[in-house]
Design a protein around this nucleic acid. Structure first.
Length: 260
DNA sequence: AGATGTCCCTGGAAGC
DNA sequence: TGCTTCCAGGGACATC
């Protein structure tokens, strides 16, 4: 049973905070005491926890993980936030502290809107269609890789999956988004859905130096075709995988399989 | 409003 | 061996 269903209905008994996370909580921790968890949802990479008053937004950043249990044990160096409830303790562990827990009064508050309202389509929803992607790409002049990473068209596509999806679609990361026609947009759409579905089925592809909540290594559970393979032979054509930088991010691509 | 650059943080790896 | 430097990630924010 997921922690979401186990924590639903619980009452908050207390909060323990460790080192500060990326942003302030937005409320005094005591202000959460007595609240009830009414539902747990997700939007993009945010976890939304509806309380009887207010809303808690959780984000795992790049290295965060959650665990939920009745006896979490003493807090470790990277255990930054415990939500202590009548059903158990939800603990956020995050070595690199890119994660966040943020309280907002409601989803329409300025802070919540700023974080959530600009998010793009859910990639595994029925509304994410090839036509939607094509229309969004047509309106953007930036490099396709950065458009995907921006999350404004479609959420959930981080650097690893952007690289992999572009390879699968045969599109070079530097191509201006609006140059991608209907046929290739459809191919990219299918590639995004496929790579995310496979990643979810396999439990994600964490960084090589981290592990999932169960402590299992996430070492390329989704086997990368290009990501992290600079100067290694392409698994399809044998040419050396190239590495370039776009907006402070590494892009890996095959010069033969991704011609334009 | 879109595009671009900067910054946050830490630990592992690589280089000296 | 021990030090320093580089690098990875998501995404808000500032600036043009």
């Amino acid at each position: 049973m997921s922690f979401a269903s186990r924590i639903t209905g619980a009452q908050v008994l207390g909060v323990r905070t460790g080192k500060s996370l990326r942003w302030p909580l937005g409320i005094a921790p005591q202000g959460l005491v007595g609240r009830r968890v009414q539902a747990v949802r997700r939007r993009g990479k945010y976890l939304l926890m509806d309380l009887d008053q207010g809303l808690l937004l959780w984000h795992l950043g790049m290295s965060g993980s959650l665990c939920f249990g009745s006896a979490p044990g003493p807090a470790g160096a990277h255990d930054h936030f415990d939500l202590i409830t009548s059903h158990g303790v939800l603990r956020l562990n995050d070595p690199r502290r890119f994660g966040a827990v943020i309280h907002v009064p409601d989803e329409d508050s300025p802070r919540a809107r700023k974080l959530l309202a600009t998010l793009g389509m859910e990639p595994l929803s029925a509304a994410f269609t090839p036509e939607y992607l094509r229309a969004g790409l047509r309106a953007r002049r930036g490099a396709i890789k950065q458009v995907l990473l921006s999350g404004k068209l479609v959420v959930g596509v981080g650097n690893i999956y952007a690289n992999e999806a572009l390879f699968a679609a045969g599109i070079r990361p530097s191509v201006p988004a609006h140059r991608i026609g209907a046929v290739r947009a459809a191919r990219l759409h299918a590639a995004i859905v496929d790579v995310l579905q496979r990643a979810v089925a396999l439990g994600g592809s964490t960084l090589r130096d981290f592990s999932n909540a169960k402590g299992e290594s996430g070492y390329f559970q989704l086997e990368a075709m290009v990501y992290g393979r600079a100067a290694q032979p392409c698994k399809v054509c044998g040419q050396d995988i190239r590495l370039s930088r776009q907006g402070q991010r590494s892009s890996f691509w095959c010069p033969h399989c991704q011609k334009s």
